[in-house]
Amino acid sequence: MNSRERILGRVRRALADVPDDARPYQEAVARDYLREHGQRSVAQTVDLLAENLADYRALVHRCTDGELPELVARLLSAHGSGSVVVPPGLPTGWLGAVDTTLVQDSAASTAPELDRVDSVVTGCAVAVAETGTIVLDGSSDQGRRRITLVPDHHICVVRVPDQVVSSVPEALERLDPTRPLTWISGPSATSDIELDRVEGVHGPRTLEVVLLSGS
């Protein structure tokens, strides 16, 4: 008997005392919890996102489409970035005013090469207001997971209000589980020294989130 059969057999014997439960999954779990916490207008939801992002030490900026290239250029230069890695499908205009070296991401580029790049600019899949979270799903404006991990400075552009949801349940509804997903809430941090939170360990130590509105 192989271990698969052994484990499955043990599970079935272990549950021999339990009465048959033919209830379908939908009835077995009472979902009496809330879909979102509190009632907010769309603008208030975006404000809450900004507030919670900032609470976990992300730097939050707001701008319109027309202002974005200037803002991105200014953030990169303020950070002293000499190079920025670009996901393949990043809207071309976003980096229109940037004068630092652009590094196109490719499957051939190695982790040590990526480690020499200062910054990365991406879009996102969805942002969660209640928790101050941005979620990346590897779409072409976000790129492979490693490009938002190895560089020390991440600028993430969120289209508001379209990409903003209130809560975790609403975010999961919008996401595709077959894609590789990264949920980011503030820059990397640790609580490992005396259970006190310190920002900045292995992931980008500076996270800047740009809330981009249409007009």
Partner: peptide, 17 residues
Amino acid sequence: RMNPYTSMWTGTTDEDG
């Protein structure tokens, strides 16, 4: 409210990971 990073993956993805 949320930990800094949560990773979710399903099998393997071409050229990512």
